[in-house]
Design a protein around this nucleic acid. Structure first.
Lengths: 340, 340
DNA sequence: CAATTCTTGAGGTACGTAAATCAAAAATGC
DNA sequence: GCATTTTTGATTTACGTACCTCAAGAATTG
C-alpha cells in the first residue's frame, strides 16, 4: 500500500497538522521540522493522492481558451473541440471559457490576456501571434503565477509554460521531402503560400521547408512565401497570378489556411500536373486530396491538442510534472490512399 | 454544482441507502423504487464522481499484459513502455503484471490467458496471433466478465473489448501510395516481406498495400508476401534471394520486423536504387532512413498504445464509455527529413 | 524573568461515495 | 390477522487529503 499522510506523520515523529503544513507550504513550521517531514516523505516515497486532495479541496480548474474567430475551418474545428471538452468539464473538474478574438489582431489577443483575473483562473491557452504585445501579456500572466499554454502556434520569445502543437519545422521538412520526391528530379520552382510570417507555426514550416528543399532537392527553387492572411480569396489571387506569370512552377506548398482559394485557382490549371501539398484535413482539402488535386495533406489533430492543453494546464496548476511523451502532438500525413 | 447522491435521495424521496443500492445494483429494492431513483438521476443529470467512488472503494485495477518475448526490437520497446506504465501504477491505481510468452506461439498465449483468474484481474491486454485457440481463450475471459484489449495486432473473430493499435489497412495503403509515387511511373515489381500472415496486423497491411498498388499503380506488380516470422536472418535470406533471382524488383515493402536483415541484404545492392518502405522506428531502421537506405518508415507509438490500453481497460472495468477520438492511435510517417 | 511570539499537537469537519449494520416499515403468504 | 419475508431508512465508518480551531509548549525578546 502506498504511504499516506498518517504514515509520514508517524515516520517523522510529528503530528498530522505539521505534515499538512509542510506539504501545503503553510507557515509556522521550523526549518528543522520541515526537513524531518521532507526526509520522511523521501524515505517512504510518499506521493500525494491527487484525486483525494482534489476531492477535499473541492478543486475546479477554471481555464480560459483564447482563439481567433473568422471563417478559417481549422480554427472553427479547434473551437468545436474546445467546446466538446467544455462539455466533459464536470468529469474533469474543469470549467472552460472560450474567448473568440478577431483573427490576425495581436492587440485583441493582448487585451483579452490582460483582462484575465489571475486569481480567478488556473490556466490559459491561446493561439498566439508572435508579436511583442502578446509576448509581454503572456509573460505578465506567468508572473502572476498563471500557467499559459500556446496552442497550434508557439510564442518562442515568451516564458509560456508549454506549447501544445506539432513540430512545425518537421512539418515543413516533411512537405519538402514529399514535394521533392513526388517531383522526381524534374527541375522547376515551388510556390510557397503562407498566412502570415508573424505566426510562428507558418514561419517554422517555411524555414523547415526551405532547409530541406535546398539541401536535398537543388533542382527545385522556391518562390515566395507569399502572405495571404489565411484569406481564401487572397490565396486564389496569389496563386493565379503566380501560375500565370511563372511557367517554371511545378509545385505548391500551402503552409497556411485558405485551401478553398487554392483549389479554385488550381481548377483552371489541371493540365499543369502540379505537385501540391497543403495543411489540415477539412471538408474542402479532403475532397481535393481524393480528387488528386492535392497530393498530400499534413494534418494536426486539434482534439488532441486541446486535450493536451487541458492536461498540461491542470498539471501545472497542481505543480505536477507531466508525461512528456504523452503530450507530443503527432503529425498526420495523408495521401489519397490513407484518408480516414 | 453537480448533484450528489444526497440530492438524488432528496429528489427521489428515498433514503441515501436506497440510492446507493440502486446505483450499485445491490438487491432488495422494489422495481417502483428503482425507477423513482433512476428518474431522479436523469432529472438532475447525476453522474457518479468516479474519483470519490474509487477513493471510497479503495479500487485498484490489476491488469495483465501478455507480450511476445524474443529479439524483436519493437516488442522490447513495447515491453519497456508497459514497464514504464507499471512504474506510474500508484498514481493510476493500477497494478500491472507483464507476462512474456515465446513469440509466434499461439498455444503459449492461450495457456497464459487461461491461467488468468477472472476474479483477481480487472483487465487483460495481449498481442494476439489470429488463431482459433487464442480467439477462444479471449472469448472465455470475456464470458467471465474480464475486459480484454488487443494490442498492436487485432483479433477480429473474437469478442475482444477494444483494439489498441493503428489502422493497419491504412498503413499498408500509405506504404503503397509512397512506394508508388516514389517509383514515379517506372514499371517493375515490389517485393512484400511479412512476418506471418497469421498476425492480423501483417495480413491487413499486406491487403491494404495490394489494394492500392493494383488500383493506382498498375505498372507495379507484387512479389510475395514472403513470410519470415520476423526473423532478421530469414528476412536477409529472402530478400537476397529475391534480388538475385528477380531483376524486375524496384521496391521493397517490409511490413513486419527484422529490418536489420533487410538492411544487410540491401547493403550489397545499393546500386539498384530500390524504393524501400518499412515499419517501426528502431535504432537500425532510423539509421537506414538517415542513410537513404530506406525511403520511408511507418511508425506506431507503442507508448500511446499502452496508455490507451490502460485507459480502455480501466474504463470498461468501471462500465464507463470512453472518448473514442482520444483512443485512435495515429500512424507516423517518417522520411529522412522529419525524423525526430 | 516575564511577556511575547513562534511552533506544534490534538481534534474536528468536510469532500462524494461505498459499504455495512440494525431496526422499522411495508408487503406478502396462509 | 398473524407470521414471515421483503423493502426501506437511519446511521456509521471509511477512503486520503485539506483546512480550521484551540490550546499548550517552546523559543525568543527586552
Amino acid at each position: 500500500m502506498r504511504p499516506t499522510v498518517h504514515d509520514i506523520a508517524a515516520e517523522a515523529g510529528v503530528s498530522l497538522a505539521t505534515v499538512d503544513r509542510v506539504l501545503n507550504g503553510r507557515p509556522g513550521v521550523r526549518r528543522q521540522t520541515v526537513s524531518k517531514v521532507e526526509s520522511a516523505v523521501l524515505r517512504l516515497g510518499y506521493v500525494r493522492d491527487v484525486t483525494a486532495a482534489n476531492l477535499a479541496r473541492r478543486r475546479v480548474y477554471p481555464l480560459v481558451f483564447i482563439v481567433p474567430g473568422g471563417p478559417n475551418s481549422f480554427m472553427q474545428n479547434l473551437t468545436a473541440e474546445i467546446a466538446a471538452a467544455a462539455q466533459r468539464s464536470t468529469a474533469e473538474r474543469t470549467s472552460i471559457r472560450i474567448e473568440t478574438v478577431p483573427p490576425f489582431d495581436p492587440a485583441a489577443i493582448a487585451k483579452a490576456l490582460d483582462a484575465i483575473d489571475p486569481k480567478a483562473v488556473s490556466g490559459v491557452a491561446l493561439v498566439a501571434t508572435d508579436t511583442a504585445d502578446v509576448t509581454e501579456a503572456v509573460d505578465r500572466l506567468i508572473d502572476h503565477g498563471v500557467p499559459v499554454a500556446t496552442l497550434v502556434s508557439d510564442l518562442p520569445g515568451s516564458r509560456r509554460t508549454h506549447f501544445c502543437g506539432i513540430d512545425n519545422i518537421a512539418a515543413g521538412r516533411t512537405a519538402a521531402g514529399l514535394i521533392g520526391r513526388f517531383c522526381s528530379g524534374r527541375p522547376g520552382t515551388v510556390l510557397v503560400v503562407a498566412g502570415s510570417m508573424k505566426l510562428t507555426d507558418h514561419a517554422e514550416r517555411a524555414s523547415g521547408f526551405a532547409a530541406v528543399l535546398e539541401a536535398e532537392f537543388p533542382e527545385l527553387a522556391i518562390a515566395g512565401p507569399v502572405e495571404t492572411n489565411d484569406d481564401a480569396d487572397k490565396v486564389r489571387q496569389s496563386v493565379e497570378k503566380a501560375l500565370a506569370t511563372n511557367p517554371e512552377i511545378v509545385g505548391i506548398y500551402n503552409l497556411g489556411a485558405g485551401n478553398r482559394g487554392l483549389i479554385e485557382a488550381l481548377s483552371k490549371h489541371r493540365d499543369r500536373k502540379l505537385i501540391v501539398v497543403a495543411h489540415e484535413v477539412t471538408q474542402h482539402s479532403r475532397q481535393a486530396l481524393a480528387d488528386g488535386v492535392f497530393d498530400a495533406l499534413i494534418n494536426q489533430d486539434c482534439g488532441h491538442e486541446v486535450r493536451s492543453a487541458i492536461r498540461v494546464l491542470k498539471a501545472r496548476a497542481d505543480g505536477l510534472d507531466l508525461l512528456n511523451a504523452q503530450e507530443r502532438i503527432r503529425i498526420d500525413v495523408f495521401l489519397k490512399d490513407n484518408l480516414p
